[in-house]
Design a binder for these strands. Structure first.
Ligand SMILES: [Mn+2]
Ligand SMILES: [Mn+2]
Ligand SMILES: [Mn+2]
Ligand SMILES: [Mn+2]
Lengths: 222, 222
DNA sequence: ATAAAAATTTAGACAAATCTAAAAAATATA
DNA sequence: TATATTTTTTAGATTTGTCTAAATTTTTAT
């Protein structure tokens, strides 16, 4: 292990990375909920991660990743997304099956393994859900995508990313034939429940709930 | 996990499988040495594996795998060897680098992952060290190979398997340009230390110690 | 500003896997 | 057979990651 972190510690810093917005500290409870672990256990772990200089932490305040913690998190995310790409593109898994398996593979800690896997895959820049893959130095592109819920009517857009990545949302999208690269256009927006009627491709019309529309990221299609 | 075993438990049943010769029970001390774990710890684990019906165990007697234990061990060996094949053939690792990484990958427990990996690799029958890969049902071919130390002079043979698989032996073989598939012929056998002089391919002559010759498995080359 | 509610930490316990040291059983040797 | 040696098990601790319950701190609401 280059990082010298246990599987559990890796999962914590990854979770902190995902919860960190701007510079705001991440609360014990948010981690507790995301990791499905008692808040008391989170407190214990934050103390340990502080000792290992992976997080800044002050009691009753919350935590933030240190620079080392951020680098570590990006490496775990790199592993996760490269494995997802491999599972999807090489082994033929569908995009809603890859996450859980990658959750285990991401903890196999050989650096040369991941760098060779990256080369074998042809240095992919995005995983099967449209999320960017950090490079070997931990650089990650920040995308400027918009939520489908905020797109004006009749503007052609392309799906580039899915926010929430539970098996449930992926199942629903699969059913609606929506995936990364799908071209969409919002036809109507209903004020009552903020649901959308969209046109996919050239023919098919489907309804999309508010929740769903807030988890589909799109970019303008020129 | 289909088997519902921890990483540690998996390592134990794999170790027991490798130590089991004929029907002879495996001793606590042999396991202790192979796993580099105190004998007292092995005793504790054997009790637990007995509870889980993975081994037959009686105090002061030793242990044997149950049918379930044997099936489990074969599945772990299947994963290990398929990953070794992948690392070697797809990612370009040399055969002496793959074992340690596979030691971690073997514990990722999705059955569909391994079966799809198997298909992706084209159902290979042998790993990079020449060891047979069990199929999805746990069937494994038993090879009838001979030790180089027991081959008569001037008989052309082909290297098919390496016994011990430490990085050290693989380094030595690599230096001598001996790998799976190499054609050999024993030229002389020195009584003093039972070292061999062998001809590899058509030109190169090299010396091989007794230890090394007892870890190179060969078959007749017709 | 005070009381109620929510978030967080501390305290104490537990299961898994490990260790060392001591006791017990099996095996080898004289 | 009696004794010495080796092997194995038991006893008691330790580390990691977890839990529940109780105490404390912070935030929200009256
Ligand atoms: Mn994922
Ligand atoms: Mn994980
Ligand atoms: Mn191996
Ligand atoms: Mn292992």
């Amino acid at each position: 292990m280059l990082l010298n972190l246990s599987h559990t510690e890796e999962n914590y810093i990854k979770a902190i990375y995902h919860l960190e917005q701007d510079g705001k500290p991440v609360s014990t409870n948010d981690l507790s909920e995301l990791l499905k672990t008692a808040a008391a256990s989170v407190t214990d772990m934050l103390k340990k991660l502080k000792q290992k200089k992976m997080v800044h932490y002050k009691a009753y305040y919350g935590c933030n990743l240190t620079e080392a913690g951020r680098k570590g998190a990006l490496m775990i995310i790199r592993r996760h997304r490269l494995w997802e790409y491999f599972l999807s593109k090489k082994l033929g898994f569908s995009w809603d099956e890859v996450h859980d398996i990658a959750e285990e593979l991401e903890h196999v800690g050989s650096t040369s393994l991941i760098d060779k896997l990256d080369a074998f895959l042809g240095y992919p820049r995005f995983d099967p859900h449209g999320d960017p893959i950090p490079d070997e130095k931990g650089h990650i592109v920040q995308q400027q995508n918009k939520l489908l819920s905020e797109i004006p009517l009749h503007l052609p857009v392309e799906v580039v990313q899915i926010g929430d990545q539970s098996a449930h949302i992926l199942e629903l999208l699969s059913d609606k034939n929506i995936r990364i690269g799908t071209l969409l256009e919002v036809r109507k927006r209903f004020t009552y429940d903020q649901s959308l009627e969209i046109k996919t491709g050239s023919k098919s019309i489907t309804q999309i709930s508010k929740e769903l529309s807030q988890n589909i990221l799109v970019k303008d299609h020129e």
